[in-house]
């Protein structure tokens, strides 16, 4: 008999209540129960970082989190980064400008990780950016475009905050 729980999780500002198996991973809950497929799964043992989401504003591996552990918490996924449907966030725009993505599979985890970094540290050094994404594996880009994008977005966000 599958052990289930009714959980309520706020995702990108919207509350969802669902009865889920208690062994269900948060990554699978987001992808297959809520059909928010932007969060990707790469290794399911917490190394690749593709599944990174923010839980109560802090980055976390959704493959190393049970959906029941998110009960009563707020989750932000890649779908929640852009300010609206027609506009990209500075970070997203910078990723396009600097060719910070190729296949796009690790990208959601990179974006959520950098979203947290730039919120906590609006003026990171290149070393701090590299360190922040050292838990995100990208097999395509060689990281350079991502690092340049993060630094550029940080600069634009600081300028935006000043204006």
């Amino acid at each position: 008999m599958t052990d289930t729980r009714k959980i309520t999780v706020t995702v990108n500002g919207k509350s969802h209540t669902k009865e889920v198996p208690t062994r269900l991973l948060l990554s699978d809950f987001l992808r297959h129960e809520l059909l928010l497929t932007g969060t990707h799964v790469g290794c399911e043992h917490g190394v690749c970082g593709a599944c990174t989401v923010l839980i109560d504003g802090r980055s976390a591996r959704s493959c190393l989190t049970l959906a029941v552990q998110a009960n009563g918490h707020e989750v932000m996924t890649v779908e929640g980064i852009a300010p609206n449907a027609d506009e990209l966030h500075h970070l997203q725009q910078a990723m396009q400008d600097h060719h910070g993505l190729q296949c796009g599979y690790c990208t959601p985890g990179i974006l959520t990780t950098l979203f947290e970094l730039l919120r906590d540290n609006p003026d990171p050094s290149e070393h701090e950016v590299r360190s922040a994404i050292s838990g995100n594996l990208c097999r395509c880009t060689g990281y350079q475009g991502i690092v340049e994008a993060a630094l550029d977005a940080a600069q634009k966000m600081r300028a935006g905050a000043r204006s």
Binding site: T22, R23, L25, E44, H45, G46, C63, L64, L66, Q69
Partner: peptide, 26 residues
């Protein structure tokens, strides 16, 4: 016992450990 899950959940996902009960102490 499950706390942060960063060591236990990989072990669960690999099925290296298969507990009958998880006690989440968060």
């Amino acid at each position: 016992v499950l706390s942060g899950g960063q060591s236990l959940i990989p072990m669960l996902n690999f099925r290296y450990v298969q507990p009958d009960h998880i006690i989440d102490v968060a």
